[in-house]
Design a protein around this nucleic acid. Structure first.
Lengths: 195, 195, 195, 195
DNA sequence: AATGAATGAGTTTTCATTCAT
DNA sequence: GATGAATGAAAACTCATTCAT
């Protein structure tokens, strides 16, 4: 007896299964069948809800983006100063939910996808711009515009680099260490100009 | 019109074609047929020389690794001081040969592959360790051991992050800017402890 | 127009098609495509149900083995004396179902396969041992153990030889003649020791 | 420096390699490349001397046929009575050269081929008829024509059966045992009618 | 709401065969 | 006399996708 209101449940399950399947089979080897099996449904159902493999993949990417965006937004709400807001952005990027092996793998996969797949590229741009504008905006309160731009660029690169390295490290990722590294970079960058 | 001694020529051509094909079709979409066509040979020949698609991909990754390793080694030979050696490593990572869109795409693809494919992982580890040990060794001459380790980790993450961002930037990657960013990070890290 | 419960139907059809295709194209030339076409399905479906060509071939061999085993078992049930049981085994080996050109071809192919393919070898061993133990057991009631073993070996060889010759005869195989030949061999072998 | 008179040497080597390759890879898996490698030459050379894979295979079969025919003919020359000639035929079929695992495998393969490949069929017919006519001719001196025909048929089937069983036995084939079995069959068949 | 059945289109891979040297 | 180079053609296999139920 089919139940009502299954749609959101199935969608969430399929997106979660997509992330995990990417993590252990590798993006280029994922099949709809594997994802569906992991979600406990038939592959036909995955198509029923998402239309196509690409759509499911895009929805998963959007989900990752929303989750990260949401996490950061929550932390920003609680921040009280520009420097605090910068810390909120940094910590948000390494919050527990985001900084898990499976999530990192999926993110990385989308980075790669974003190079050649226009929709993925579009989604990735949104994230990159939001991160950049958040950082630049707050840094501008603390230093010159030029310094702010450069530091934002460096912090963003460092965040990406730490993600990618943790994806490959094998051991459990340590958010605290990553956060400390970026914070230190920001502090140093802000400190420099004072000397 | 078959000639003798074609093997090395074909191997090089196929590896080059692999890098370029990954760049414009995306790693998960490359086919042996596309690569072979780009190299101007039949797909049967690609199999003849490399055995399988995976082997061709692995050989390409090895090539990338060797090329980067060679570039850095060359620059290290000419370096005269520890600080100079650090600059050599940094500049080597962004040298013209390496830091081209197609090469960056291929590298990125291999980062992703390294997460799930043991041979790719092994190869990647070699690179990561070599980079890390080079940096730590030279930084140790300039600061405490702990600082050296942390700075090396940060510099490596920054390098990776800059690569990944340039892979997605779309516009032509600017090595000078990337180099400046990492140099600045190293300077700041070394400078901090003096204050 | 998909229906439920097609799997067993398709499996049977594919196994039957395998036997017939081996018969008229020769074992070394069969392709999954030909088999599937003969079964009225796509080759993808053959893979869907059997996994691989080898698996389909192995399943077909197992089917042949089961069919022969079943036929013999049926006849053994109705046998009342040791000599009768021997006749049941002989007649079973040449029963209408087994002794048809296509079946013979497939059997022969598997004899050959059994030389190099371990799974086929295993299956073939089962058949050979069962035939041997049946014959030895019943012959032991009628003669010395040594004679029983030798006669069983001879009868088995004769059965195999008649099969193989009928496979190549071209004309319709005549079970009665083959049965008479083996029966005569057994009778002679049993008669000898009495004289 | 290419040598003169290599042709017969290469042809023999390739035929020998064909037999051995069939033995350990199975007829349906042999490739010209494997055969050539085993013979220590390039696959192009195999084509140079034999024209095509099928031709090489046919030549190999012809070789087997000739070898067996020659062995039997030699023994027949030395036979002095009809019964002796029968023994010569039987022993010839199990002579050391013929009754080796690799040779048996190749023979068996050709039995299978003979079902679907006309040239193989033709060659096989020659062998079968020669064996049959030899046996019938000599048996006719010792019994009625009808008995001779039946006994020849039985002996031939037994020979084939023993070959096939030894091909699969795994252990080293024992010619003496096989010969004894066929001799015994002939003796019994001839003896029966006297009683 | 959900799935088993089925396939077309494509991909990797293998191999006999040819040819210039 | 012999081979490395090269490929066309065909085979196995995979998979996203559709559809009737």
């Amino acid at each position: 007896m089919p139940k009502l209101g299954m749609e959101p449940i199935r969608r969430r399950a399929l997106i979660g299964a997509t992330i995990e399947t990417i993590h252990d089979r590798g993006f280029s080897n994922v099949t709809v069948g594997q994802i569906a099996r992991r979600a406990g449904v038939s592959s036909a159902l995955a198509h029923h809800y998402f239309g196509s493999k690409d759509d499911l993949l895009a929805a998963t990417m959007r989900h990752l983006l929303d989750a990260l965006g949401g996490t950061i937004a929550d932390r920003l709400k609680r921040a009280t100063s520009p420097r605090d807001r910068i810390s909120a952005v940094i910590a948000g990027n390494f919050a527990a939910d985001q900084f898990r092996p499976a999530t990192i793998s999926a993110w990385l996969a989308f980075y790669v996808q974003a190079q050649t797949t226009p929709p993925a590229r579009r989604l990735h741009r949104i994230y990159a711009r939001r991160l950049n504008s958040n950082l630049v905006h707050d840094l501008s309160h603390l230093t010159t515009r030029d310094e702010a731009v450069a530091t934002a660029e460096g912090a963003a690169a460092l965040i990406d680099g730490l993600w990618i390295r943790h994806a490959l490290a094998g051991d459990k990722p340590d958010p605290a260490e990553a956060i400390a590294m970026v914070e230190r970079f920001v502090d140093m960058s802000l400190g420099m100009r004072r000397h």
